[in-house]
Simulated assay, not measured.
Amino acid sequence: MAEFKTHLTVSSLCSSAAATFLLAACLATPDEVLLFFVMGVVGGLLPDIDSDSSLPVRLLFTFIATVISFLIMFNQGADNSAAELFLIWLGSFFVVKFLFFSMFTRITVHRGIIHSVPASFFFWFLTTLILYHFFSFSKHTVWMAGFFVFAGFIIHLLLDELVSLDLFGNGPKRSSGTAFKFANAKDLKSTLAVYGLAALLFVATPDYTPFVRTYFSADSFASLKVFPDGGWFTHLYRTYLSRWQTKPTGPLSQIDS
């Protein structure tokens, strides 16, 4: 299995590259690029959420508990005092961080059904629903954000599978075949549960038509330039040169400097 640093690095690089392509193709705003990047990194770490004692899992649950607590607090009435809002946030945080985490670690097994392809669809649809109903993003944005979670999740599974093959070592390890899987033969109940939950979440998700039309139409990437037509970074050079030439040179600029 790949290390946490490896998963973090690979998911960050892949998410950065994919989000940058969307920005260059005018298919995402800078705010959406940041959202997609974060979702891709989170997706790249999610498969190991069923590891009971690892530091990354504890950090991930702390992050999730913090976000959920803020969402609960934001849904409270404006007539609450600051102390009441803080207590609501604190109570929600402890419930998610400790009670839910304890229950989750008891019912899951490391490298079980959470570490599988159907789980990636479950988290894709769950992310889409949360962002749509709690943050009011557009339909195509929430679907793409969920897709970044899905893609990061799949990259994690593939990376673990490649490491288990040990191509430059002594051949496949015992863990080979346990990372990128579609079912857990030893736990059919959990397998059916994840498939069923993913199906229910998909039914509850908003219309995916805007997502498909925005990102998968024939003209979606028509304006994308992968490589520059002329010299590299000429636009960047001209931008800074024009700013330097138009910089004020009067007494006020001398005082500021």
Score class of each variant (00 low, 15 high):
Phe4Met: 00
Phe4Asp: 00
Thr6Ser: 02
Leu8Arg: 00
Val10Ile: 07
Leu13His: 02
Ala17Asp: 04
Ala18Glu: 03
Ala18Pro: 01
Leu23Lys: 13
Cys26Arg: 15
Cys26Ile: 08
Cys26Asn: 15
Glu32Gln: 15
Leu34Phe: 13
Phe36Tyr: 15
Val38Tyr: 02
Met39His: 10
Val42Asn: 02
Val42Gly: 01
Asp50Leu: 13
Ser51Asn: 09
Ser53Leu: 15
Val57Gly: 00
Val57Phe: 01
Ala65Val: 11
Thr66His: 07
Thr66Trp: 09
Val67Phe: 03
Ser69Pro: 04
Leu71Ser: 05
Leu71Lys: 04
Ile72Gly: 11
Met73Asp: 10
Met73Glu: 15
Met73Leu: 11
Phe74Asp: 13
Asn75Trp: 12
Gly77Ser: 15
Asn80Asp: 11
Trp89His: 07
Leu90Gln: 14
Ser92Asn: 12
Phe93Ile: 04
Lys97Asn: 10
Phe98Ser: 11
Phe100Gly: 07
Ser102Cys: 09
Met103Glu: 12
Met103Thr: 02
Thr105Ala: 12
Thr105Trp: 02
Ile107Tyr: 06
Thr108Trp: 01
Thr108Asp: 10
Thr108Asn: 13
Val109Trp: 06
His110Val: 02
Arg111Cys: 06
Gly112Asp: 06
His115Ala: 02
Pro118Gln: 05
Pro118Val: 00
Ser120Thr: 02
Leu126Ala: 09
Leu126Arg: 10
Thr128Ser: 03
Thr128Asp: 05
Ile130Asn: 01
Phe135Val: 09
Phe135Trp: 15
Phe137Arg: 06
Ser138Pro: 06
Trp143Pro: 10
Gly146Glu: 08
Phe148Cys: 11
Gly152Tyr: 02
Phe153Gly: 11
Ile154Trp: 05
Ile155Phe: 02
Leu157Phe: 00
Asp160Gln: 09
Glu161Ala: 03
Leu162Glu: 07
Leu162Asn: 05
Val163Arg: 08
Leu165Tyr: 05
Phe168Gln: 12
Pro172Leu: 06
Ser175Asn: 09
Ser176Cys: 07
Gly177Ile: 01
Lys181Glu: 04
Ala183Phe: 11
Leu188Ala: 15
Lys189Gln: 09
Val194Ala: 06
Val194Pro: 00
Gly196Ser: 03
Leu200Trp: 09
Leu201Trp: 00
Phe202Met: 06
Phe211Val: 05
Val212Ala: 03
Tyr215Ala: 03
Phe216Met: 13
Asp219Met: 13
Asp219Pro: 01
Phe221Asp: 13
Ala222Cys: 03
Ser223Arg: 15
Lys225Cys: 10
Phe227Gln: 13
Trp232Leu: 14
Trp232Glu: 05
Trp232Pro: 05
Phe233Asp: 12
Thr239Pro: 03
Tyr240Cys: 12
Ser242Cys: 07
Thr246His: 07
Leu252Gly: 08
Ser253Gly: 15
Asp256Ser: 10
